[in-house]
């Protein structure tokens, strides 16, 4: 068991490091002229500078060093919580992220909770339903919900709930009311995904022999699905929890832009628009860290909920 936990931790760290490295490589190696790109973000036009001025400017942002040198100093900084300075805003990236973290965390947690509840309820109802048309409708609903672009849903909600009915504020981060529409927008997608996985899982689970046994002992269909089906059907769905949380974080980029919420997502959009490389690197790494962390938690929880996993892995490993 200890080996399993340590192995998972090591794996998570390696994936995180690799994700950081890939992002760094994309940002620093892809552009034809990374110096012009980053100095451009700082409002310096490289064409108009004399060579001496260019060298001073490059030295100021640490761009005169070899790429590998920059990579290791960035990595070292990251490990100490120092994300460098934003080029366009002339502020430490850590401060920028700290300022913007609150609204996004609130949004992510609300959206994740909402999608868990809605996704589970939909899948539960769909697999309990016997009446064919209603069942078909419910099983088709998720793929329908996942087909709409989030910005479209957001605009539709604003039009409907803010401008037509006047119930909710269209923009801003003040109060719980401002959280309602953004969370609905995000969770429509994530709940659909969860419901699709859960519906399949219910399909498999309710065909297991122990369900037949429970029915044969005289339990009602409702009781069987609740006490024997539900918990077992949840297990496979646990594996996509990481994907779901990751999705709520990335969805925040579009959703916060539409609803003008000053969160991390909006910061990401602004940073890309200004081509502010250090900020983009920090946000992408942070999101990858969240994703890796949730997956690690799921991996560690899984054997507690389903002991067969560790047993099975041991068998595979020994063979």
């Amino acid at each position: 068991m200890t080996r399993y936990i340590l192995g998972r931790f090591a794996q998570a760290l390696v994936v995180l490091w690799a994700a950081y490295t890939v992002t760094f490589a994309v940002l620093y190696l892809l552009p034809s002229d990374p110096v012009a790109l980053q100095l451009g973000a700082a409002g310096i036009e490289t064409d108009k500078l004399t060579p001496e001025q260019l060298n001073t400017a490059m030295a100021q942002y640490g761009l005169d060093r070899p790429v590998l040198n920059q990579y290791f100093s960035h990595l070292w900084g990251f490990l100490h919580g120092d994300f460098g300075d934003s080029i366009s805003k002339q502020q430490p990236v850590a401060d920028l992220i700290g300022d913007r973290l609150g609204p996004t965390v609130a949004l992510s947690i609300t959206a994740a909770t909402l999608s868990l509840v809605a996704g589970m309820a939909l899948a539960y109802l769909a697999s309990y339903m016997r009446w064919r048309p209603a069942r078909l409708f419910l099983t088709r609903l998720p793929s329908f919900g996942a087909s709409f672009p989030q910005f479209f849903i957001a605009l539709l909600l604003i039009q409907l709930l803010s401008f037509n009915l006047g119930w909710l504020p269209a923009t801003g981060v003040k109060g719980w009311k401002s959280l309602v529409m953004p969370s609905i927008t995000i969770s429509l997608l994530t709940a659909s995904m969860l419901a699709q996985v859960l519906m399949r899982s219910f399909d498999d689970t309710l065909r297991q022999p122990y369900i037949v046994t429970a029915r044969a002992k005289g339990l009602s269909r409702a009781a069987v699905q609740w006490r024997h089906g539900f918990r077992n059907a949840l297990l496979p769905a646990l594996t996509i929890l990481g994907v779901l949380v990751g999705l709520t974080v990335t969805s925040a980029i579009v959703v916060e832009t539409v609803f003008s919420r000053n969160g991390l997502g909006k910061l990401a959009q602004e940073a890309v628009l200004a081509q502010d490389v250090p900020v983009v690197l920090a946000i992408v790494s942070l999101a990858a860290a969240v994703f890796v962390f949730v997956n690690l938690v799921v991996d560690l929880l899984y054997p507690l909920l389903d002991p067969r996993i560790v047993q099975g892995r041991r068998k595979v490993a020994s063979s």
Binding site: V15, A18, V26, V249, I253, I283, V284, A287, A288, F291
Partner: peptide, 21 residues
Amino acid sequence: VDVLLAIPSLLMALSIVTALG
């Protein structure tokens, strides 16, 4: 491929757009 999957694809796209313009 696993590593690429660990970076949410929208964020990967944002990095590439930042770099390419």
